[in-house]
């Protein structure tokens, strides 16, 4: 059970002077239950890539297999794929439309063909899992604060119980606490339900804190693919394509340059703290 991208290329405005290759020979295997971060600067192909995963864009070359089936096959049910591979777009609150939060969250499961009772249960479950306050279930989604709207919108996708959940910068525009809360709930859900999570992010710190695999996109290609430690150890390569490593990783490298015996692969505050305490001869 997995998503396999076999040599995917995507070009638009083909045959004109403005032809752009947005994806160039991308091959990836995304196994069940992985928590993946996708990073890359604007225009590197991140968004184009994720839109292929649920069939919103069709590759100009190559094929995608979901659970062993070719999704470009004539008989393949793309609608079914989209309920299994759920997508939370950037600023998902722009897509809220129903009269109440509860109806909005129910819309997805109803659309999947579930009966009213089942859809209602799903909506309860999803709203509870994102920590949405019950008092607001019957409120208009348009009267909520930014953070609450974001939660409601994410709940709308969760209610469809996707096996693969793709989130395109889910914390953009949120305050620091809001960022931690949203990422925390995604991470908790991943631990509880073991579904596959694909997180597109601009924050190296967030990616370092949460994911177990990072895919770095650059110039329409997969530039790196590995664990956070593997990826963030290649500082020069990352900087070359306009990315960076977490601040604490830079600190560890500077300590090393000054001759201190530290493990430069620390990517989180916790890891950096333990390394420095070790240097100081203190137990963490």
């Amino acid at each position: 059970m997995s998503l396999i991208l076999d040599n995917i290329s995507y070009k638009y405005s083909t045959g004109t002077a403005y032809e752009v290759t947005a994806l160039d020979g991308v091959s990836l295997e995304i196994k069940d239950g992985q928590f993946i971060g996708i990073i890359g600067h604007t225009g590197s192909g991140k968004s184009t890539l994720i839109q292929h995963l649920n069939g919103l864009l069709k590759a100009t070359e190559g094929t995608i297999y979901y659970n062993g089936q070719d999704i470009y096959d004539k008989d393949y049910d793309l609608k079914d794929l989209r309920t299994q591979v759920g997508m939370v777009f950037q600023y998902p609150e722009h897509q809220l439309f129903e009269t109440t939060v509860f109806e909005d969250v129910k819309f997805g499961p109803k659309n999947q063909g579930l009966d009213d009772k089942e859809a209602t249960l799903r909506a309860y479950e999803a709203l509870r899992s994102v920590g949405f306050p019950e008092d607001y279930y019957d409120q208009s989604p348009f009267e909520l604060s930014g953070g609450q709207k974001r939660r409601a919108a994410i709940a709308g996708v969760l209610a469809m119980k996707p096996a693969v959940l793709i989130l395109d910068e889910p914390t953009a525009g949120l305050d620091p606490k809001g960022r931690d809360e949203i990422l925390g709930l995604i991470s908790d859900m991943h631990k509880k339900m073991g579904n596959t999570i694909i997180l597109v992010s601009h924050s190296m710190e967030d990616v370092a804190n949460y994911v177990d695999r990072i895919i770095v996109m650059n110039d329409a290609k997969v530039y790196m693919d590995g664990t956070p430690k593997e990826v963030f150890s290649r500082v020069k390569d990352l900087e070359e394509i306009g990315l960076a490593v977490p601040e604490v990783t830079y600190l560890m490298m500077e300590l090393k340059e000054r001759g201190w015996n530290v493990d430069v692969s620390a990517t989180t505050v916790e890891e950096a703290k333990n390394e420095i305490l070790k240097l100081k001869g203190m137990n963490a």
């Binding site: 305050d175 620091p176 710190e205 601040e247 604490v248 505050v269 950096a272 703290k273 420095i276």
Partner: peptide
């Protein structure tokens, strides 16, 4: 106040 500090400050 739902704010944070820079990563180095936190460390």
């Amino acid at each position: 106040h739902r704010m944070d500090v820079p990563q180095i400050t936190l460390l």
